[in-house]
Amino acid sequence: MNIFIVLALAVATVSAGVVPQDIPVHPRDRTFAPSISGRITNGKNAAENQFPYQVGLSFSGSGSWWCGGSIIANNYVLTAAHCTDGASSVTIYYGSTVRTSPKLTHSVSSSNFVQHANYDDETLNNDISLIKTPTVTFSASINKITMPAIASSYSTYVGQTAIASGWGRTSDSATAVAKNLQYANLQVIANSVCQTSYGSKVVTNGVICVASVNEVSTCQGDSGGPLALNSRLIGVTSFVSSKGCEKNAPAGFTRVTSYLDWIKSKSGISA
Rank of each mutant, 00 (worst) to 15 (best):
G17N: 05
L181H: 13
K144Q: 12
I142D: 08
K103V: 13
G63T: 04
K44E: 15
F138G: 09
S152V: 05
P52C: 10
S165N: 06
T237D: 09
R28E: 09
V256H: 06
I150F: 07
N180W: 14
S35F: 04
I71M: 07
T170P: 00
I234P: 03
S165M: 13
I189Y: 04
C209D: 05
A117K: 14
H82P: 01
L78N: 01
G38D: 07
G221A: 08
A46F: 11
F4M: 03
N45E: 15
C209M: 07
L104D: 06
I3A: 11
N49F: 14
Q160M: 10
A8K: 13
G61E: 03
V158G: 00
V203A: 11
Y94E: 10
S96P: 00
N126C: 07
T175W: 03
G224M: 02
I189L: 01
S70Q: 03
I150N: 05
F4A: 12
P250A: 06
P102Y: 09
S64I: 02
R255H: 05
S152Y: 01
P24C: 07
V203N: 10
L260A: 04
T123Y: 11
V216A: 02
V136T: 12
D127L: 05
T31L: 11
A16C: 10
T196D: 10
Q195E: 13
P34T: 09
I36F: 12
S265V: 05
V6D: 01
S111K: 14
D127K: 06
S58N: 12
F4T: 08
K243N: 12
T218D: 10
P226G: 07
S241E: 05
R232F: 00
V14G: 02
L260S: 08
I208V: 15
S141D: 15
N42E: 10
T135S: 15
Q54W: 11
C83I: 01
S62F: 08
K247Y: 02
D121W: 05
A87F: 02
L78T: 04
V213T: 15
E215S: 14
S197M: 03
V256R: 07
A162S: 10
T156Y: 01
A140C: 01
G166A: 07
V14Y: 12
D222Q: 08
L186E: 14
T137N: 14
S107F: 04
